[in-house]
Amino acid sequence: MTFQPLMDSLQQMNALYANLIELGERKKEQVIGNQLNDLTQTLSQESKVIKSLTSADQARKQALIAFQQEAGVKADPNMRLEDVVKHCTSLAQKQALQSVSTELSGRVRILRQLNETNQQLVRQALDIVNHSLDLLVGSPEDEMVYQNPGLSASHAKRNSYFDTRA
């Protein structure tokens, strides 16, 4: 009866991926809304879920090895779920594994797309911040041009609120 622990671990992973998707959507809204304090809390929650996902994956690997041993198959903790289905004895087990496999694949695909979107949003936010700083402080290219030290003493280098030497 080693099938049930395998299904339990897969269902737990499925729930954790659903939680990550929810947190990813929240992150997206927080980045768009520039809610940095809330974003920090969401990142902390996401980190906890990822730790839980790591332990759930370890449980899945152990349950998979036990299932493989019972089925008389060579132990491979990285065996794909499609291959595990082939070693199930009952139709109900096969259908349950296929269902969980489909759900997991869909959630992973959604999570990847969401992470790509969030990465693009963060890059755009950083570009906006860098552009705003360049407008306030002046672009770094302005300082890279050689000027005669005797002539530049009479001109103010920058007219800004920030001390760039700090």
Rank of each mutant, 00 (worst) to 15 (best):
R165K: 07
L133C: 02
Y146F: 15
Q69A: 00
G106V: 02
A66M: 09
L16E: 07
A125C: 03
V137E: 01
K27R: 04
T89M: 02
S152E: 14
S55E: 15
L126F: 11
L36Y: 02
M7T: 04
Q58A: 10
V73S: 02
S55L: 15
N115M: 11
E46H: 11
T42R: 06
E22C: 03
A166E: 09
E29S: 03
N78P: 04
E82V: 10
V73T: 05
L43C: 09
A18Y: 11
E25I: 00
G24M: 05
T2H: 14
Q30P: 10
Q68A: 07
Q62C: 07
G72N: 03
M144C: 09
Q62R: 13
A125L: 04
S52V: 06
E25C: 00
Q124T: 09
T117A: 07
T42P: 13
L43I: 14
S99D: 14
S101P: 00
D83L: 01
N14Y: 11
K28M: 02
Q113T: 13
Q98P: 10
T54V: 03
R165S: 05
V85I: 13
L151G: 08
H131Q: 09
S99C: 10
K51V: 00
M79N: 07
Q124K: 11
Q45K: 15
T164I: 12
A66D: 13
D127H: 09
Q98L: 13
